[in-house]
């Protein structure tokens, strides 16, 4: 194992471990408002300080990590798989699926999103649990976020269609699903991986923005997106640089996952 991979494992373990144990190790409940310590700087009681409602930043960060770090990659995985399926079959199966893909991804990309998401919000009961709302949001993001990536996948798959190794695989008698799944997909992996990586932070931020529509995270549940939104207030950063902690964690996580999941073919 390379040194980078080792470091990545350690980083992930350091982030995920405490996050999973958030219920036990967080110094305070994530929703508890310490009304006498509003926007407090770091102290022994609140190692990362408190937010504008006096809630312990460390506790919120731990809980947010647990929620976002499980849900965002899951949604990214969902959308990447859909993109892989749609893009590859469009590139592979000839003119009709290609046309259908073009039309459906165009449609999806120019759809009035607001309207669709509003409809979803209207269909949900008002008192939906914060966690359920969050899961639904990520599911939506995953299920609807494939259109853009699938075009990239289709372009990559179309160029691979004429590659020597796929020709050779055909000459070896490989065909159909097996050719797609065992020969094409691995070759598309770098493209898919890139789509996956870019989707994670995108979804984390998209979730935060969906708050405008009443979707996504609902008070008092914390999520990375919600915590990152606080960064909009730049004066808060100057007062307490630990506000940046979620951004740093996000970066560290994306880096670590990138190192761990990247295959050796990158050396080629």
């Amino acid at each position: 194992m390379s040194r980078a991979r080792m470091a990545a494992w350690i980083v992930l373990a350091l982030i995920l471990g405490p996050a999973l144990a958030a219920g036990w190790i967080a110094p305070a409940p994530y929703h508890r408002q310490f009304r006498e310590a509003i926007a407090a700087p770091p102290s022994a009681d609140h190692p990362l300080g408190t937010d504008e409602l006096g809630r312990d930043r460390l506790s919120r960060l731990l809980h947010a990590t647990r929620v976002s770090l499980l849900l965002a990659p899951a949604a990214a995985l969902l959308s990447t798989l859909l993109a892989a399926f749609a893009g590859a079959s469009a590139a592979w199966l000839g003119r009709f699926p290609a046309g259908a893909h073009q039309v459906s991804s165009d449609l999806l990309l120019c759809l009035p999103w607001m309207f669709l998401l509003l409809t979803v919000r209207a269909a949900l009961p008002l008192d939906v649990e914060p966690l359920a709302s969050l899961v639904i949001t990520f599911l939506l993001l995953g299920a609807l976020g494939w259109a853009g990536p699938s075009r990239v996948v289709r372009a990559a798959a179309a160029s691979l269609r004429n590659s020597d190794f796929l020709l050779l695989a055909r000459a070896q008698g490989v065909a159909g699903w097996r050719l797609l799944s065992r020969h094409l997909m691995p070759a598309l992996r770098p493209v898919l991986a890139a789509q996956f990586w870019t989707s994670i932070p995108l979804f984390i931020l998209a979730e935060a923005n969906l708050g405008i529509l009443g979707l996504g995270v609902v008070e008092p549940l914390p999520s990375w997106g919600g915590l990152l939104k606080e960064l909009e207030n730049y004066s808060a950063i100057a007062e307490n640089p630990f506000v940046l902690a979620p951004a740093a964690l996000l970066l560290a996580c994306v880096w670590a996952m990138h190192v761990l999941l990247a295959r050796k073919e990158r050396a080629a």
């Binding site: 020597d164 050779l168 000459a171 070896q172 020969h183 691995p186 070759a187 073919e265 080629a268």
Partner: peptide
């Protein structure tokens, strides 16, 4: 293909799937 007729291509580098 492959069982009765085998094929060897010109460029060994591009003929092998780099990801397998």
């Amino acid at each position: 293909r492959g069982s009765r007729i085998g094929l060897v291509l010109q460029s060994p580098v591009s003929s092998l799937n780099p990801c397998l």
